[in-house]
Design a protein around this nucleic acid. Structure first.
Lengths: 201, 201
DNA sequence: GCATGCCTATGAACGCCGTTCAAGTGCGAT
DNA sequence: ATCGCACTTGAACGGCGTTCATAGGCATGC
């Protein structure tokens, strides 16, 4: 086995174990020594596969994004009219809520993680985010055919931000800590309101 | 000076210095040794005034909430009609954005801070939050006079969550990092959309 | 004024963290 | 078989929040 192959195998093991640890204990549950022990390597070996622990977290977060994309299923074929577009936005929002509930700590890690040097996320990470935002742009373009593409991309991100806020604060055990059924209902009310309000203007 | 008076004076000094440190460097910039040096006391003295550093952060966060409440000015006297209610919601949202921009790290600390043992925030903290939510409930009640008070309180919190999401992700230098003018415009579009969509249903 | 006893402030020490790097190990080439 | 090099290793480092034996001061009694 070449050195590169071993490094790749180590990377895979580390990411898998880190994923398990984050899913079980959250971001603070990822500790270098514990990770090394779980992966069957020395602490120092982690730093031959990743620049630091933040790199491991980023790799885990990419897997989480992929997992969410898979949970969304294939993109909607065609969206017939404004009502269908509104329905699709609600469906996406509720899929988001369902995923956050199913994988609370992994999902939390997506947003709680901060790169140390204040740098932006790497390109491969931003690209995966963009694929997910495209899911929102699709129905939004049906709802607002008057918007140019840049405006549509922007509005899709803001729609996501609003949805994320409702889910994140609603689920947060230290903030609202709302029952899932309540969040579900509130999310539908507000996404429908936004869709309706955007259409008429 | 009695022991209680000294303890209170120490608390005030610690909170003031901690506020300065958080405003300058964010939550990770608050370190026990540095705080003690700034306050002119020994590290151990911190733990005579607060149970731990999280207690200090909570006290700073309460001051931040008070600062925001002051920035909002006195509650609106009367809200004439649905259009005025919609305007008031937009005004509140933009005041929120303005505050987050003016005090980015202090504001960030409000949401990034996690209590260690997963316990909920203390009552005095929740009470201050409730006073702020009441600002939203007021125009919302005009917009939706059909809602009972519990539903109104719930919807107000969800409206806040959505607004918070737009502001938080929009300002986040590692996520969207949108220019302030863009966030401002998106916020107005979506708050107006929500207000319009809520009214018609 | 002085000795006594309590009580609080002190900061070195503890345990844990991420990260590094001198040293040892094993493997491929000669 | 021997050598040399590259890689793995885990003890060590610096820094963190928190603790606690101890030093010090202050009120009290004589």
């Amino acid at each position: 086995m070449s050195a590169d192959e071993r490094r790749r195998a180590l990377r895979d093991t580390l990411v898998a174990e880190a994923e398990r640890m984050i899913a079980a204990e959250g971001l603070p549950g990822l500790r270098a020594r514990e990770l090394a022990q779980a992966a069957g390597c020395a602490v120092g070996a982690i730093y031959t596969a990743f620049p630091d622990l933040d790199g491991v977290v980023l790799a885990v977060n990419l897997r989480t994004l992929n997992l969410f994309e898979a949970a969304l299923g294939p993109p909607a074929r065609r969206i017939a009219d404004e009502a269908a577009a509104s329905d699709e936005l609600v469906r996406l929002g509720q899929a988001y809520l369902a995923f956050a509930r199913a994988h609370p700590l992994r999902w939390d890690a997506l947003f709680r993680h901060r790169a140390p040097s204040g740098q932006r996320a790497p390109d491969w990470y931003v690209a995966e985010q963009a694929r997910l935002f495209a899911r929102i742009e699709q129905p939004l373009a049906v709802l607002r055919p008057d918007l140019a593409e840049p405006e549509c991309r922007l509005l899709a991100r803001s729609l996501f931000s609003a949805t994320h806020g409702i889910v994140a604060l609603g689920l947060d055990p230290q903030r609202l800590a709302l029952p899932p059924a309540v969040i579900h209902a509130q999310l539908e009310i507000l996404v429908r309101a936004m869709a309706a309000g955007l259409r008429k203007s």
